[in-house]
Design a protein around this nucleic acid. Structure first.
Length: 552
RNA sequence: GGUCCGUUGGUGAAGAGGUUAACACGUCACCCUCUCAAGGUGAUAUACAUGGGUUCGAGCCCCAUACGGAUCACCA
């Protein structure tokens, strides 16, 4: 009895060899320097902002080198896979411009000739590779139960020894072929372990494309490569898939760095060319003094839905991620605002070695810069799409008179230095609520007038203004001159400077009077340009609002 | 506990032995101004974790310490 018999017992129906697969998935015919990479999520139905960052980086590198970016679904953990998980990922990433050249395009269709791209559909392939290792005596079945392993772990902890399945702790490593054969025949459950040739006292060096040279002890753990359910573990699937898909660059989160010695060993066991490893640091968060990874459970800003609900433009999020991805992106973008992110050439050496603290303030800043560059009708479409999903009441009001809403959004927009106050679409309602009677009339209003506190004086000013001065046809200059006239009539300085130079002569200045007009009209002391507001509201509505106050 | 990585102002960072240690965000002040958002100017910030070394010279090289992070599953 030999290794082949054992391999055949375990995989009686696997007839293709690893050489067959070499031929089915030949080397890609791509120009020198093209990067073939992949994004390989589990279909949990959730897109982490760090995942968006990783997939964005992966797709950027492949696109700018005329390479290939693959979406591969890692669903070998059946407990974690979720219905529609694949489509959620595809659609979620597409919104941000991350589009894959190969991989699933829906729950049951895929494109590309290096598939299948869903790991659960690749079982046969993995089995051929496991079988090969078995035949070569480089892998063996292990019958240890979870309880046994747990016990071993406890003993190791007690004895202060390294934890893991290695050396004298690797009980099944030296089982005879006969014993293994018989136990499998008896239907004992088992996993397949890799027979590690490593020595913990020897050091290996590998060069991480992002982190540089890293030295580590060789791996001597006999890791599980095939679970008892017949599916491969991550390490093994990674080896098989990235080899067969002809990945040149493995771009992934840096939690994988400690496993690199395992991966290297696996590649060497098959004599496969190793890909470049590029490990990206995670997005961090300062949580009351302690720094940790942005967590799906604790941090709402981790989920893309957070930005959708707020109405943060996808472009803003992407722009922010790009500034994190490459430290010189921001400077470039500031100089090239008319260009697209894809016009920027990302480089590996500008990716930070240590994790960046996620800074929502910075995101807001980027977002308001971005929104300020949009044309009013574009913004209108974006805001209405947003409202349709998240605020139906305001959607009705906002879209009732499209031209009117566009005019509002256009205030101080078509100018050299446009207004920068909106950081997200959801802010429109609060910012411009006083422009919509349906909302404004229902509002409980508190008019707090600074400077001019005498209510009767306020009423008087409003009345005189609307009766005597306001003219819908005035241009901005005339309009303001009339407010100056009004101020003068009531004993306020026409110019702020006059007042400051000679305070005793005046009750106040034109600014104080404007403030009254503003607050009485909007119930706020801070608004966009008053002239524009009045122009859009029109004399009747202004009169209505003022009269309500005068009649109080 | 073992292994690995990291540490430049509140934040992201530039920096490949010789710089007054950039830039951006934030904060503050002033200017502009009818308010706000901007914009302009300036400032702020204990900024190179600490201690040793190498060197004529160290944020950059070496060692140690501290702190932070990652990882040590039949999860990925």
């Amino acid at each position: 009895m030999n290794n082949k018999d054992l391999a055949n017992l375990i995989f009686p129906n696997i007839n293709k060899t690893i050489m067959d697969y070499e031929n089915i998935y030949p080397k890609r015919n791509l120009p020198e320097g093209s990067i073939v990479t992949r994004y390989a999520p589990s279909p949990t139905g959730f897109i982490h902002i760090g995942a968006l960052l990783a997939s964005f980086i992966a797709s950027s590198f492949s696109k700018q080198t005329n390479g290939v970016v693959i979406l591969r679904i890692e669903d070998t953990d059946t407990k974690r896979t979720m219905d529609n998980g694949i489509e959620i990922i595809i659609n979620g990433l597409r919104e941000y411009g991350v589009i894959f050249d190969e991989g699933p395009i829906s729950e049951n269709e895929e494109i590309g000739s290096y598939g299948p791209y869903i790991q659960s559909n690749r079982k046969e392939i993995y089995h051929a590779f496991v079988k090969y290792l078995l035949e070569e005596g480089k892998a063996y079945p292990c019958f240890c139960s979870e309880e046994e392993l747990e016990t071993t772990r406890n003993m190791q902890t007690q004895a202060r020894e390294r934890i893991g399945y290695y050396g004298k702790w690797a009980k099944c490593r030296n089982n005879s072929i006969e014993e293994s054969y018989n136990r499998i025949k008896n239907n004992e459950p088992f996993v397949i372990r890799f027979k590690s040739p490593g020595d913990f006292n020897k050091i290996i060096t590998y060069t991480d494309v992002i982190k540089g040279n890293i030295e580590m002890p060789e791996n001597d753990l006999d890791i599980v490569i095939m679970k008892s359910d017949g599916l491969p573990t991550y390490h093994f699937a990674h080896l098989v898939d990235d080899h067969l898909m002809r990945t040149t660059h493995v771009i992934r989160a840096d939690e994988w760095v400690p496993s690199v010695p395992i991966h290297i060993q696996l590649f060497e066991a098959f004599n496969f060319e190793k890909p470049y490893f590029c490990h990206i640091s995670p997005l961090l968060k300062n949580d009351e003094g302690s720094i940790r990874k942005l967590s799906k459970r604790k941090d709402p800003e981790c989920a893309m839905s957070f930005y959708h609900e707020l109405g943060v433009p996808n472009e803003s999020v992407l722009l922010y991620l790009a500034t994190i991805a490459n430290s010189d992106f921001e400077e470039w973008y500031l100089k090239n605002k008319d260009k697209n992110i894809s016009d920027f050439t990302f480089t590996f050496d500008k990716i930070g070695k240590s994790g960046a603290l996620f800074d929502i303030e910075k995101l807001k800043n980027i977002s308001k810069e971005f929104i300020s560059t949009l044309k009013a009708n574009d913004l209108y479409d974006r805001v209405s799409d947003y409202l349709l999903k998240y605020d139906n009441e305001f959607y009705q009001i906002f879209t009732k008179d499209k031209d009117y809403s566009i005019k509002i959004l256009n205030i101080q927009r078509e100018v050299e230095k446009p207004r920068k106050d909106l950081t997200h679409y959801g802010g429109v309602k609060n910012e411009y609520i006083y422009m919509y009677d349906e909302l404004y009339d229902k509002l409980e209003k508190h008019y707090i007038y600074p400077y001019i506190t005498d209510k009767e004086e306020v009423k008087c000013i409003l009345k005189v203004y609307i009766d005597k001065y306001y003219d819908q046809n005035d241009n901005q200059e005339d309009w303001f001159n009339k407010i100056k006239d009004l101020s003068q009539e009531f004993g306020y300085a026409r110019e702020v400077k006059d007042f400051k130079n000679n305070q005793s002569m005046y009750k106040g200045h034109v600014g104080d009077v404007s403030t009254i007009l503003r607050i009485a009209l909007t119930s706020r002391d801070k608004t966009i340009d008053l002239y524009s507001i009045m122009q859009l509201l029109g004399k009747n509505r202004i009169e209505d609002r003022y009269n309500k106050i005068i009649d109080e």
